[in-house]
Amino acid sequence: MGLLVSEKDIVIPGQIIADGMDYLPAMNTYRGENNIISTRVGLIRVVGRSIKVIPLSGRYIPKAGDTVIGRITAMSTASWFVDIGYASEAGISLKDATSEFIERGADLSQYFDFDELVVAKITNVTKTRLIDLTVKGPGLRKLVGGRIVKITSTKVPRVIGKQGSMISVIKNATNTRIIVGQNGWVWISGESPEEIQRAADAIQMIEREAHTEGLTDKVEKFLGGKKNDSNIQEEN
């Protein structure tokens, strides 16, 4: 009776997590006849009496409040459409694009043009997954230059680290500017292409080894080691 697994255990779809009515099903779980069952591959998290499963795989599902990076794919007379790595495109309306005055009939491409990158915040996601973005707010803007590295959105928290610890390590070691979108798109910009490549390698390493412990140390070693000598192959 009660919980059949412990905190941070791996569960699979259809696995019975808890017996009886002592617990409540939360994210990625449901109540069976007299038990709680997982619907995703993930890690168990118990908060009070509620059980949730933190997914370990899957595509990005947009939700309001997320800061994401996207690419402009289309324009209409009053809005832009942005690819944020989801099945449907997100929209930026004129009023959410800029605080400047836009004249009637103005050429919208002077604000955002095709293929340009933006870091934007999701303001609203409707039931049918129509996504509204805003580029008005602190840190939200058009991204000029740099490159994009795409990672699995479930690994984003590891790339950022506790209070941004991981990302500061990479930024400081490679002297780059990095923005991580919740959708798993990572923008890296810097002076030298080699440094950008090193930062990208480090991020991809984090994605690969997201499940291991002491990752910050590994990344420090990875970035420190590459500068001095070439024995990085053994370290991995």
């Binding site: 779809p13 449901y30 069952i37 619907t39 479930t154």
Partner: peptide, 11 residues
């Protein structure tokens, strides 16, 4: 489907 993170009630 499980690997793709698709929500499934059972295997």
């Amino acid at each position: 489907l499980a690997d793709a993170g698709i929500s499934m009630k059972d295997i």
